[in-house]
Computed example of a mutant assay.
Amino acid sequence: MSLVAGRGPISADPLGWFVPPLAAEVAFVEPHPRRVQGIRAGHAVIDTEAVLLVHRRGHPLGYAFRSDEVGDLPTQPLPEAAGFVTVPWTAVDAWYEEGRRLVHYPPNPYHRVDCRPTRRRLRVSVGEVVLVDTDETVILFETSLEPRLYVSPAHVRTEVLAPSSTTSYCNYKGTAAYWSLAGEGRSTADIAWSYPDPLPESAGIAGHLSFDATKVDVVADLPSGVSSPPCGCG
């Protein structure tokens, strides 16, 4: 969802700026030449390669299909492309793109994940208890999102962590497992997560942990960058 999510270029809070500025109501529609299937009750009710991707401010990334290829599914016309309609994500039981089952939204061709070994320091603590203090980290750059530091469990006091039942899924990193603090006289749920078996583009963080700064004290040496338009141009 990189154009419309996070701080993407047509999100509600873009990191960069356009000159001249874009209109408040903006959409980018493009051909998406991949086979997309929508499965309901075990049958493909959509099976087509005539697909559009719709990037619209204030909305998640979505598909649009020719109106004669969606059967009796609920639809809305796509104003930007005559003869095309959108279908609610929940109108089918499962979506597939070229054989890969999708979760939450289509994968975005503009979304990229880069995992780079770095010497950026990460310190994680709970009160006086230090869980991590190392500069042997991996920095994850993900389009439209803030960079994150991940660390090998070899540098974590894993003896005070316990696996959680919580999981989550990312179309670019895979299924995350969570860890809770369960030692030192404290108990805090889901303070960290890791991707035991990440998707290929995120292989560089396999098994590494990242920490939730809303639940523990995190000091991370992250890039500062440029935070506002120079010369008053945006």
Rank of each mutant, 00 (worst) to 15 (best):
F65T: 02
S187L: 09
A220E: 13
F65P: 07
S67A: 13
I139W: 02
E159W: 09
G204E: 03
P77W: 06
A91G: 03
V103A: 12
V45E: 08
R35E: 01
V92S: 07
L140C: 10
L3T: 04
L131N: 11
D221G: 02
A182T: 11
G234T: 01
V219E: 15
L78T: 00
E128L: 01
W17A: 03
S164Y: 10
A154F: 10
R57A: 14
A213K: 14
L122P: 09
G42L: 11
V219H: 11
L122S: 03
V219N: 10
P9T: 06
S194F: 03
P60W: 01
E146H: 14
S210N: 14
I139M: 12
F211Y: 10
R34V: 10
D13W: 10
C231P: 00
G8D: 12
L181R: 02
P229V: 00
Y172S: 11
S187P: 02
E136N: 11
A203P: 07
V45I: 06
V85Y: 04
D135Y: 06
S187K: 11
A154R: 15
V70M: 00
W179R: 12
P106G: 04
P230Y: 00
G16N: 09
F211S: 12
Y63E: 08
R120T: 01
P88A: 06
H111K: 15
T158D: 01
L209G: 03
G185W: 00
P21G: 05
E98V: 04
V4F: 03
L52Y: 05
R121D: 09
A64P: 04
D47T: 06
L3Y: 08
N171G: 15
D221N: 05
R40S: 14
R66A: 12
P107C: 09
Y110P: 06
Q37F: 00
L52S: 04
P229E: 05
H155M: 02
S180V: 02
P117A: 09
L78I: 01
L15K: 10
L73A: 00
A176G: 07
T137M: 11
P153E: 12
L61V: 11
A41C: 01
A162Q: 15
R119K: 13
S228T: 00
S194H: 08
D133T: 05
T90H: 15
V4D: 05
P196F: 04
I39T: 10
R101T: 04
Y150V: 02
G99E: 03
L122V: 05
A192P: 13
V160T: 04
E30S: 01
W95H: 07
S11H: 13
F84I: 04
R186S: 04
L53H: 08
P31M: 08
V113P: 06
V19D: 09
E128G: 11
S227T: 15
P163T: 09
L3N: 11
T75L: 02
R112H: 13
E30W: 01
R186M: 11
A44G: 04
G174I: 12
V218M: 02
Y105W: 07
T75M: 04
S224Q: 12
R100S: 07
P153V: 12
R120P: 05
H43K: 15
